[in-house]
Design a protein around this nucleic acid. Structure first.
Lengths: 346, 346
DNA sequence: ATGCGGAACGCAATCGTTTGCGCGAATGAC
DNA sequence: GTCATTCGCGCAAACGATTGCGTTCCGCAT
């Protein structure tokens, strides 16, 4: 019986404390140590379990999930595709995804695809090389092949935020959200309105715009195409689009921006046009980010529960891992009225 | 010579196309295939290399970086610790970190630590379990042990954004940034000013505040402690702090917020107090986020080059991997004057 | 003819875990 | 006292890649 000294990991050099190290100290076979350390230590004596665990703790042992994954086939890693993390909306969703995944014992890797097909391919490839267990797609786009490819390869995936026909998704009812915004503006008496529509290849931009236009149409005030301008989903892009709207011969009396950051940009455009946000030009945003409430002129917005979407998408994916089949979730948005949509002065 | 049919990966089930598969098709030993596929295919015939690579492409082979890492000891993964990704500043930095790492063939895993020691420990542990090659710490905090622990374990790391005495870091000169803000306000004639100081345990909050106070002190107008209020780094927190300042018997004529999002919150507070941002109460933010320029009242801010910080931190880390020693970097901030700091009406 | 050197490639160990299987001992039933 | 279980544990084969070392074969000089 050779007795090895227990050197605290404090000692110094890298990390040669492997399962074998623990096993040796505990005087058991490495397989026994493995079992003792597993969640369900069946077939191992109670005292052995205790001893092994204790030793593992003292030695500072940490299971190498990579090596374990090699054996088990599961990397316990889920990949997340987003357009950009500097989009606060996606950052929020990702935060809750990461929290939920982490709680379930999974790690996450996220990639900015910049809504660009090449980036998407490259980054997805990198993920697959890491033997990702599943993917949450937050940047789906009409004509995008990522989801199809994953299906073909048999890799579980869920769409979040943006939906795509025929794929499992967790989203908010964007059509209805647009409708809510329209109803609100109609009720206030607005008739000539503009839309900053976002990316029309993303279901969010498309559906919110569509719902909005439909409502105005039904009310008898269809929007001319010039009053609907496409954009990216960033503040500068909102500024640009807002300018276009304000430069129309007859500028709108109200603007619906399909994203709060776009609304923020629109505020700048309205100011530049010499008008006041709210009193002169009403404004409705979307997503109700934290900052919407605290702006100099608090922003009316359509709230969607980002945290919830994140959590639910992880749930769905986890269910997918277990072979259960989940079905798409559609959350309901809510109108939050603030100062940017005051009653019309007559 | 047994001839196996080349089945396109399109076929269906999971992914059993391993290095061995490729080798078999190419009629070579797996070791030869490995070499042929490596960056520097030394000791392998030119035609063999071509054949193997071609076959690998056709079969849709993808090297399992996890398995490779097991053998080589490097996971080609770098971990990033941030307080939260919904903090736009950190999101920007992380974006550039991810881009730079990705370009260098590394993947990244990011973790929100919420500036909470427990979270930090847990998440760092998870990272170490993945045999991270190195860590970029974006949430360092006085009294935080993460950096020390990494040093002890011999894991390469770099601090970014926030510095800590005795550790390699890539930061902006926050003291000078605070100084710039102060000089600007002094020049405009402000004498009674307030500071929304952020977290004083983070070097950013501390140094920016310090630089600012020092400048006012030297000018002969030291700030009473009541005019300096601590906070988190979020918009709601800025609102709260701003309210405190505006409720002082003699509210300040100008506010320096050490983070643009705090400034955003402060705008809300100023409005709530019935005053106008800029004309009644001047405001200076920090970091010059995209949205600063497009706010209804464009925000004067201190710009720090976030992308650059991200890229440089990756550079430093990669240098660390190669054993080279890098030294800390201190970038220079810049004052960007906008509408929230107009000349004082006399 | 012999020897030498190098190119091209195969062999097998290795990284750290997990897990099906088998074996000995202890336990219980009769 | 015998036999069948059960329990606790060890053995060894995976997982997918990398790499030091050995082997074979060829060309060329001596």
């Amino acid at each position: 019986m050779k007795d090895e000294p227990i050197t605290a990991p404090t000692s110094g050099r890298s990390r040669p404390v492997t399962l074998a190290t623990v096993a040796r100290h505990a005087q058991v076979h490495v397989s026994t140590a493995s079992r003792a350390l597993s969640d369900d230590p069946a077939g191992v004596g109670a005292d052995t379990v205790r001893r092994v665990r204790e030793l593992a703790a003292v030695l500072g042992y940490r299971r190498d999930v990579g090596a374990a994954g090699l054996r088990t086939g599961s990397s316990r890693l889920i990949g997340v595709l987003v357009p950009r993390l500097t989009d606060l909306v996606l950052a929020s969703i990702y935060e809750s995804i990461d929290a939920a995944a982490s709680a379930a014992g999974y790690g996450t890797v996220v990639a900015n695809t910049l809504d660009d097909p090449d980036h998407r391919r490259t980054r997805l490839d990198a993920m697959l090389s890491r033997r990702i267990d599943g993917v949450i797609i937050g940047d789906s786009h009409i004509g995008d092949t990522a989801a199809h490819e994953l299906r073909r390869r048999g890799v579980p995936y869920v769409l979040v935020m943006r939906k795509l026909e025929g794929h499992l998704s967790v989203t908010t009812d964007d059509h209805r959200g647009g409708h809510l915004a329209a109803e609100h503006l109609l009720a206030l008496g607005h008739r000539r309105v503009g839309v900053i529509a976002g990316d029309q290849l993303a279901s969010t931009g498309r559906e919110r715009t569509l719902g909005f236009r439909r409502a105005f149409e039904s009310a008898g005030y269809p929007l001319p195409d010039a009053y609907v301008v496409e954009s990216a989903f960033s503040t500068p892009s909102g500024l640009e689009a807002g300018r276009q709207l304000m430069q129309l011969p007859e500028p709108p009396t109200a603007i619906f921006a399909v994203h709060d950051l776009l609304a923020l940009g629109a505020m700048g455009a309205i100011r530049d046009a010499g008008k006041r946000v709210g009193d002169d030009v009403a404004l409705v945003g979307y997503n109700d980010l934290d900052l919407a409430a605290t702006l100099p002129v608090p922003l009316t917005s359509i709230r969607s529960d980002l945290q919830r979407m994140g959590t639910l998408s992880v749930d769905a994916l986890l269910r997918g891992f277990k072979g259960e089949t989940a079905s798409s979730v559609l959350l309901q948005p809510e109108l939050i009225v603030r100062a940017t949509t005051p009653p019309l002065r007559s």
